[in-house]
């Protein structure tokens, strides 16, 4: 049961970042512009990529939903 919940959460992360890191969202940042000297697309990909890794690490370590206190 716990495995299944964990699997679903991880599946959610995968699906979410699949959308974030693909067309059409990518096209928003797909421009030859810089922010503080860094190309926007490069910046966007880097940040979202790291966020994805952080999300995975976070969800693996938090596999039990906290019990609701009455």
């Amino acid at each position: 049961m716990r495995d299944r919940i964990k699997g679903r959460r991880l599946f959610f992360i995968s699906a979410l970042f699949m959308v974030l890191l693909n067309f059409p969202l990518l096209s928003i940042f797909d421009a030859a512009e810089n922010i503080a000297g860094v190309p926007v697309l490069y910046l966007y990909l880097t940040i979202v990529w790291l966020a994805c890794i952080a999300a995975i690490a976070f969800f693996i370590n938090r596999q039990h939903p906290k019990k609701v206190k009455k």
Binding site: D3, K6, G7, L10, F11, I13, S14, F17, M18, L21, L45, W49, C52, I53, I56, F59
Partner: peptide, 17 residues
């Protein structure tokens, strides 16, 4: 070139399943 590394990152959470 980054797509080749983003793919495995997206696959990694599915490893559990």
């Amino acid at each position: 070139y980054l797509a080749i590394y983003i793919g495995p990152t997206l696959m990694a959470p599915l490893w559990w399943v």
